[in-house]
Design a protein around this nucleic acid. Structure first.
Lengths: 246, 246
DNA sequence: CTTCTAAAAACTGTTGACAGTTTTCGATTG
DNA sequence: CAATCGAAAACTGTCAACAGTTTTTAGAAG
């Protein structure tokens, strides 16, 4: 799981620090759903599992707290954060603004090769829609977004944007993306590609922002559907009545 | 400096964790210029100075690393980050986008009392320009920006925006703001207030974005002036020749 | 006087231990 | 049988110590 050189028990801490490794591992566990919102991080058992001591684990948790993936409670340790509806909607707004910014920056500097890569992604998404292969579309769509952000050549933005997406994933159960909108979504991609091709930063920014805000709207609609269907099964859990979620 | 209940040596860790306190203290030291870019954080002496052990100090540093105020080097510890010109410019772009987003969000929900508070700030800035009191203008300007962001009612944005500003402060020596532009700047504030008053989110977003980008332009101009005058004194330090700063 | 070298000092990364707090669990009570 | 209480267990927050690395210092060599 985490070995120094050849064998695990060797305790020689010079080629690399444990902390980033642990941090990525926890991120992975959250991303993979092995750790879900609200779960408490047991430092001791996690350390034991990774074959190290609690110190580095705590440091990694502290870093993840700053990112927004964990939260801490005094004398109770770290918990996987739960993102409320309000927070999720807030994140959409921020992502919209940043994504637009990415586009504005990218428009003037994106190389032709990158444009062709985006074009190819759109083509593949088209294919995924025809099948239809929702999982493939999801992956391709993510890659499209990522490449636009990377094309901005803004290191901080490239670092920041995925963090916000990761945080959004902590909203209840992800996979809220309505598959029905794939066609519309890809049309938006085409418009975005056009704007980028013409080095029209303003248009690209507007389109990218709207693209995310459209996602927010879909998210909201899904949310409403969900609460509507949720009402049917009947509230067995008294905590269900906390609707002011925020 | 850091006492539990009545006296310092009492080691009872239950009312609060050291980590946030240390984190804020380091942030303060950086903000106050007590720690400048490139400085190494000496964990032991800092811990000694704060009357605690290295564990919490390291956790705080790890958190600050994630924020972008510190960087870590294997077996050499934590250093106060230095923000390159490229990174500073990148930060301006991100701030512009986020500030615009804040305005778009604020426009539709900002209460009249908040509008009046902004109006008052503009008035005070006007006065500061007349004196002229650059320091006062600087403070008021910061407060204006802060209030706009707060008016967005987007918690993540309210958390994120100041972090980017703090990071920007790590660029060489701050205080690069050209005082000559105060009048122009405050005119922009007025236009922003107008847009917010009319609940015109699109206009507010555009104006706020441009407001920051104007700051970026000033920053760039100052930078050019600086390198121009820097050339005169003559390069005594061989490292001066690294101009590809990025 | 500068340059190289080796030992000493300083410091980081990690560990194991301890005090205090929260949680669990069983016994007791109503 | 559910609720309450208290002791035991589990866990967090912090500390002190150790091994290994980097930096400094002192001395030798050119």
């Amino acid at each position: 799981m985490l070995r120094r050189s050849p064998a695990n028990p060797a305790r020689t801490p010079r080629t690399a620090s444990f902390v980033p490794v642990i941090q990525r591992e926890i991120e992975r566990m959250i991303g993979a759903g092995e750790l879900t919102g609200g779960t408490r991080i047991n430092e001791s058992s996690l350390a034991l599992k990774l074959g190290i001591s609690r110190g580095p684990v705590r440091e990694a948790c502290r870093a993840l707290e700053q990112i927004g993936l964990l939260r801490s409670e005094l004398n109770r340790g770290f918990f996987v954060r739960e993102v409320s509806t309000k927070e999720a909607l807030d994140l959409y707004d921020i992502r919209a603004g940043l994504f637009g910014t990415a586009g504005r920056l990218a428009a003037s500097i994106i190389p032709t090769t990158q444009l062709r890569a985006l074009e190819e992604l759109i083509r593949q998404m088209e294919a995924a829609i025809d099948v239809p292969d929702i999982a493939a579309f999801y992956t391709l769509n993510n890659e499209f977004h990522r490449q636009v952000v990377v094309a901005s050549d803004n290191a901080k933005l490239i670092e920041l944007y995925p963090l916000l997406e990761a945080e959004l994933h902590l909203f209840r159960r992800r996979g809220l993306v309505l598959p029905g909108s794939m066609r519309t979504s890809n049309d938006e991609h085409k418009a975005i590609l056009d704007a980028l091709s013409q080095s029209d930063g303003t248009a690209a920014a507007r389109l990218l922002e709207r693209h995310i805000l459209a996602g927010k709207a879909r998210f909201l609609r899904t949310l409403e559907d969900e609460t509507a269907t949720d009402a049917r099964p009947g509230p067995l859990d008294p905590r269900n009545s906390r609707f002011k979620d925020r």
